[in-house]
């Protein structure tokens, strides 16, 4: 036993050797799991996916599985762009933005942005169930908030203008970041009510599958 070892042993005298061993093993396992989740946060191999699924009873309840949290801040892809939900009242031709008025740096605002990205992610993969159910919720929310069911809903991506346009190098792209050229409709639905009072949404894209219904609460 070295002098340093004796000193350290004297320092942690409040724990027995057995306790130190058990805690050491638990800590080692815990941090192997933490780092495994960390390296599986962006893209997962089949083995990583299997391991992450295996340890999910431990990681999920404690939110240790970061589940694709974007610690990288941006990759400049479509999924890093801003999205806005717009609605059109019945009989109207103008679109209104369902906006969160919170301060831009606030988590409340960020939640709204993530909601839009999540919807867009599924819409761009042609998985209709998630976006349709989210749009039904949005329609019910708008009715609850403003007293009237919207006629149409759409999610639009607000592309960031390239720096070349802002620096006036690329004069073919407008400098105004709010120019219509920078908006793309990712998903659009018509909001319908059936005879039983259930709210449905029908994607405007004719290729899309029928959307499921949600009971009006």
């Amino acid at each position: 036993m070295t002098e340093n070892h004796r000193q350290v042993r004297a320092d942690y005298h409040e724990l027995s050797d057995r306790a130190v061993t058990i805690i050491s093993v638990l800590l080692a396992i815990h941090f192997i799991i933490v780092f495994l989740c960390g390296i599986s946060n962006y893209v997962r191999s089949a083995m990583q996916q299997r391991l992450v699924t295996l340890i999910s009873p431990y990681t999920q309840p404690l939110a240790l599985d970061w589940n694709y949290t974007p610690f990288y801040l941006t990759h400049g892809t479509e999924m890093d762009m801003d999205y806005r939900l717009e609605y059109r009242a019945a009989g109207s031709t103008s679109w209104l933005v369902l906006d969160n008025k919170a301060w831009r740096g606030c988590e409340a605002r960020a939640r709204f942005a993530r909601w839009g990205r999540f919807l867009a992610f599924h819409a761009m993969q042609d998985v209709d169930e998630v976006p349709a159910r989210m749009m039904v919720s949005a329609a019910l929310f708008i009715r609850h908030k403003f007293g009237q069911l919207p006629d149409r809903l759409r999610l639009r991506r607000h592309d960031t203008r390239p720096w070349e346009a802002a620096a006036q190098i690329d004069t073919t792209r407008p400098d105004d970041p709010y120019d219509e050229q920078y908006f793309t409709t990712v998903y659009e639905v018509a909001v319908l009510t059936d005879t039983e009072g259930r709210v449905r949404v029908a994607p405007i894209d004719p290729q899309a599958r029928p959307a499921p219904a949600e009971l009006v609460p």
Partner: peptide, 24 residues
């Protein structure tokens, strides 16, 4: 490490995509 997976962190324009995002 995940920043390294994005081209914008290599070509030096990642800060632009963050700075110029019109809504956020």
């Amino acid at each position: 490490l995940t920043m390294l997976a994005g081209e914008v962190w290599w070509n030096g324009t990642a800060s632009w995509w963050l700075l110029a995002a019109p809504e956020s």
